[in-house]
């Protein structure tokens, strides 16, 4: 958001440097149940982002002072791997990842039926294998699928995507260049069945009209992400029932 470049991010025909239109999201690939040990897991790619998410639990909450006698707590660890960015990222927790983990946990608490598991913890581990702008949205989208894969009761699953602004154009799903050299970034996550907003951030500079237009695009796109999440879960269940069918024989 603060960088400067002579690069043309959106050309006169409204085409972006990766060939997308302003209202086009990057290609998304989602696969559920990719890890053996975790209760649920998900691998997700959106554009050049590669994200792996695992869910453990519900299990006994540790440290115990975090236990809630009325419901389960959701503990999220968002972590960027050292080689995920151009400059090596120093391993370990930084302030950015603490904030992102907190926001993702809060967004998930809106849909997970935590009241069913008092004193328990549902632990969500999000690993960013490769980052290219939009990793918190990718992480949250993957986390919802991993929670569903773990069989944890939820009101709905949460898709997330960003809108923003670059070269004066309101854009859907910013890539790295647009994020670095653009004028605004607005990640958003919704509950598709009700259109409630469960995650929302913004930085940059937008007028009311631009913001409203961006949100319209992002919410519509979030519904498309939701369909891809559902499809990944359906494929997962189809493969499980097929396996079970085979072992019966």
């Amino acid at each position: 958001m603060s960088g400067h470049t002579d690069m043309v991010l959106v050309d006169e025909n409204g085409i972006r440097i990766d060939g997308r239109r302003v209202d086009e999201k990057r290609p998304i690939k989602i696969e559920a149940g990719v890890l053996k040990n975790a209760s649920g897991s998900c691998y997700l790619e959106i554009g050049k982002n590669k994200v792996l998410c695992a869910v453990y639990g519900p299990r006994e909450c540790r440290p115990r002072h975090l236990q809630d006698p009325t419901k389960a707590v959701i503990q999220v660890k968002y972590n960027m791997e050292a080689y995920s960015v151009t400059d090596r990222k120093r391993p370990g927790t930084d302030r950015r990842s603490v904030e992102i983990s907190k926001l993702i946990a809060e967004a998930l608490e809106c849909v997970v039926q935590t009241e069913l598991y008092p004193r328990a913890s549902i632990d969500v581990y999000i690993e960013i294998l490769q980052a290219n702008a939009g990793t918190r949205c990718a992480g949250l989208t993957a986390a919802s699928v991993a929670l569903a894969d773990a069989g944890i009761p939820m009101r709905d699953i949460v898709p997330a995507i960003a809108c923003g602004k670059a070269d004066g154009n309101v854009l859907l799903d910013l890539n790295k260049e647009e994020d670095n050299y653009g004028q605004a970034d607005v990640p958003i996550a919704i509950v598709p069945s009700t259109d409630e907003i469960v995650l929302l951030q913004m930085d940059g500079n937008m007028t009311r009209e631009e913001l409203d237009h961006g949100l319209d695009m992002a919410i519509a796109a979030a519904h498309e992400v939701y369909e891809i999440q559902r499809d990944a879960l359906k494929r997962r269940y189809a493969s499980i029932s097929k396996k079970e069918g085979e072992s019966d024989e």
């Binding site: 009700t194 259109d195 409630e196 907003i197 469960v198 930085d203 940059g204 937008m206 009311r208």
Partner: peptide, 17 residues
Amino acid sequence: DGNFRAMQKGGRGSITR
């Protein structure tokens, strides 16, 4: 100028449009 520069939603609940 009344333009939007930053936003942050927090908390375990949701908000509507």
